[in-house]
């Protein structure tokens, strides 16, 4: 891997640039911190002047709330519960969506037959089914996972179908000429070819999984970080409620960042080949 002249800007060329940026740009960091200070000051001012509802906690209160949250076991338990439900639903969605999508995408008759159904499923706001699913399954973790799957399945499915559809005709001919067996074709040709699209679906599904898992907790008795927020709000512990919200955001941000990183290393070939 010594030829670099044909490469588009990639992770490798980006890394040194980023560290250069860090060295050069202490001022950026300072400005970012400054901006944070301004945001917090504005918030504090808004609370004190009554621009925000009077129950809104002040900055010191939320800071204290953050500390209370991190040091309490119930917070970590709740985070774990949300995380495991979201992850379980996400994994099921991914496996199911990729499998079905790669099955449907290459077969034109199946693709055409399922298009309306898939479109409907994707556009359907699944959360509306929650009361019905709640009646059927009760406020349980399996209900929560079901809801997560019903919400997160669609982006993976749609993206996998798109990915499988675009298999290059040249490659399709090659695979036929050399009589590649079905299973090997699936694993070594169709899957990698569809991967750039699949990963996008997987990434969207991850955000939706968290959104759905937290939403279910907010609306029902299912335990987790969403439930903690509702409970804190009901108990008028606004400092804690904001702290939990902050961690929910941090959690979502971490997941997105990790997935984006995994994706760019998994798809190095794609960036090179098309760039």
């Amino acid at each position: 891997m010594t030829t670099t002249h044909t490469r588009a800007p990639s992770a490798e060329t980006k890394a040194p640039r980023r560290s250069a940026l860090l060295q050069r740009d202490w001022s950026l960091l300072a400005q970012r911190l400054g901006a944070l200070g301004i945001i917090l000051a504005l918030w504090q001012a808004a609370v004190l002047t009554g621009l925000l509802p009077s129950i809104t906690p002040t900055v010191p209160e939320v800071t204290l709330g953050l500390w209370t949250a991190v040091t309490s076991t119930s917070f970590w338990t709740a985070l774990g519960q949300t995380l495991s439900a979201a992850t379980a639903g996400w994994i099921i969605s991914c496996v199911l969506g990729v499998f079905l999508g790669l099955l449907i995408g290459p077969l034109r008759w199946l693709d055409r037959s399922t298009s309306v159904t898939v479109e409907f499923g994707r556009a359907f706001p699944t959360i509306a089914l929650m009361p019905v699913i709640l009646l059927l399954l009760g406020a349980t973790t399996s209900m929560q996972i079901t809801m997560v799957v019903l919400s997160a399945l669609w982006p993976v499915l749609v993206q996998s179908i798109l990915g499988a559809r675009r298999l290059d005709p040249g490659i399709a001919d090659t695979v036929r000429i050399y009589r590649i067996p079905r299973l090997l074709w699936f694993r070594r040709v169709l899957l990698p070819s569809a991967l750039p699209f699949v990963t996008t679906g997987v990434r969207i599904a991850a955000s939706i999984s968290i959104l759905a898992a937290v939403g279910i907790e907010v609306l029902t008795q299912v335990p987790g970080i969403g439930r903690m927020i509702t409970l804190a709000q009901e108990a008028q512990r606004w400092d804690l409620a904001f702290a939990y919200l902050f961690f929910a955001g941090l959690f979502g941000w971490t997941v997105t960042a990790l997935l984006a990183r995994a994706e760019s290393s998994l798809l190095a070939w794609n960036r090179q080949a098309s760039g």
């Binding site: 809104t56 937290v214 939990y244």
Partner: peptide, 14 residues
């Protein structure tokens, strides 16, 4: 990245 559904109890509660 904040799960938007988590905002609901806060805003409605407030």
């Amino acid at each position: 990245s904040v799960p938007q559904s988590a905002l609901v109890p806060l805003i409605i509660g407030a």
